[in-house]
Each structure stands twice: as C-alpha cells, then as structure tokens.
Design a protein around this nucleic acid. Structure first.
Length: 233
DNA sequence: CCCTGATTCGC
DNA sequence: GCGAATCAGG
C-alpha cells in the first residue's frame, strides 16, 4: 500500500481526532502502526502526549543506538519549556465525549448589543465532538466551514445483550474468531478466547478447525461444523 | 504481558 | 519517503 492523498487525509483526520496509531493503521489497512506513526511525523503531525516523551531525555535512547557525537554535543542551552500545544483544549484522547446537546444553535443575532465592544473571545476552541467538529456556543457562530469530510465513524455498538459478547468489532489478531451461533441472529458472536498463538482460533477451536487427515477409507463421524451445524428449522 | 508514541536508520 | 526495529513509559 502506498500513501495516496486520500489515505493521507484519512490519517490526518484520525490522528487529529486522537485515534491511536494502531487504530488508524487498522482502519486504513495495509499499513503497520509504525508506518502510521512514521508518516504522521513526516507530515509534521507531531503533538499528542506520548507515554515516553513526558520528560526530555532523548540522550539515552539516542546514545544507545548512536553513540557517535551525541554526548559531546551537549548544548548548555536550557530549553525554556515543552511548549504546550494548542493553548487550552484538554481533549482527552479517546474519552467518551459529552453528548452534543447544543450543537447548532440557529444564528440568533441580538439586535440590542451589536455595537458593544465584543468581549475578547480568547479561548476560541471549546471542545471537539465526534467527527472532529468544534463545539461552539451560540455566540461562536461563523464556522470556518472546514471541508467536513464525510468520514465514516466507528458504528456504535448495538448495546443490548450483545454487550459482553465478542462482536465482529472486537476481533483482533489475538482473539479467537470461532463463530458462536448463526450469523444474522441477534446473539451471534465470536468465541473471544485468547488465540492459540499463530492461529486464528483458541486452542480448543483449533482442535476443531484443524484435524489430522486419516488414511483413506477410514470412516469417521463428521466433525461438528462451525456455526453450530446445519440450521434446524 | 499488553498497550502507547518517538526515534533511528537501512532501504 | 518509507517503515521495521528498537526504545521507553504506562
């Protein structure tokens, strides 16, 4: 896969919305988490709190793999501060955003206080809602109208009794994908156990999925099929 | 263990 | 430019 313009746009959007590199890589497909991070940095999409970047001590890592002229280049220039990105907008990454209660209030123009010295709208950014739009108060209309990409959001879980079951969305590299029940039925889900490393199923279901070939002519009762066997109606 | 992002460096 | 390998923190 290559970084087409479209994929780069998707990367930018997701990155700015706080999705993790893994999630972005999974969504884009065909790229690794590292590829996403590398690309993001190349695009200058830095920022975002890193678990390892908190303090500044890149010397150790840099010196570890590149003990060239790292130590000698110790500049006595004490850096001022980590420079807080985007003054004030503590957007907790991936945290459930509050429901957009007052999103698009109609452009109500107050005919009374129109020439009064407009109070300085200092903290411009209010919060970021799902989809990347900026929530704004009634007085904060005049949205710059960014392209507003028709982005596909992660569908909400259907809640209900499937809540604690392993749904299609829960499948990962290391979750047993053995189907339980029949697809389409309300309680259809997947096994969800930890996989037998290297296989798509857990140990138990590997035993069902992969069975040694017996010599020809050997009679053996047919193994139970996935999906719980033929549907009985 | 799992996860995360940052960084380096051979390609 | 790309991304695997590696590092380091949670």
């Amino acid at each position: 896969m290559s970084w087409t313009d479209e994929r780069i746009d998707q990367l930018k959007g997701m990155w700015e919305r706080g999705l993790t590199a893994s999630q972005i890589a999974e969504e884009l497909g065909g790229v690794s988490r590292n590829a996403v991070i590398g690309k993001a940095h190349r695009l200058g999409l830095q920022s975002r709190p890193s678990p390892v970047k908190a303090n500044d001590a890149p010397k150790k890592a840099a010196a570890a793999r590149k003990p060239v002229a790292a130590v000698e280049a110790e500049a006595p220039a004490a850096r001022p501060a980590p420079a807080p990105v985007a003054a004030a907008a503590p957007v907790p990454p991936r945290a459930a955003a509050p429901s957009p209660s007052q999103v698009a209030t109609p452009p109500k123009v107050d005919p009374v206080a129109n020439d009064a010295p407009t109070p300085p709208p200092q903290p411009r950014i209010v919060s970021v809602g799902p989809g990347g739009f900026l929530r704004q108060g009634p007085g904060d209309q005049q949205a710059p109208i960014p392209p507003a990409p028709p982005r596909r959001l992660v569908p909400a879980k259907p809640s209900a009794e499937i809540a604690d079951k392993t749904s299609l969305l829960d499948l990962t590299e290391r979750i047993c994908k053995w189907p339980m029940g029949h697809p389409g039925e309300p309680d259809f889900h997947f096994c969800g156990e930890a996989v037998n490393p290297g296989f798509p199923y857990c140990v138990e279901h590997c035993g069902r999925a992969y069975q040694a070939q017996l010599p020809r002519g050997t009679r053996r009762p047919p193994p139970p099929l996935p999906f719980g066997g033929p549907r009985v109606r």
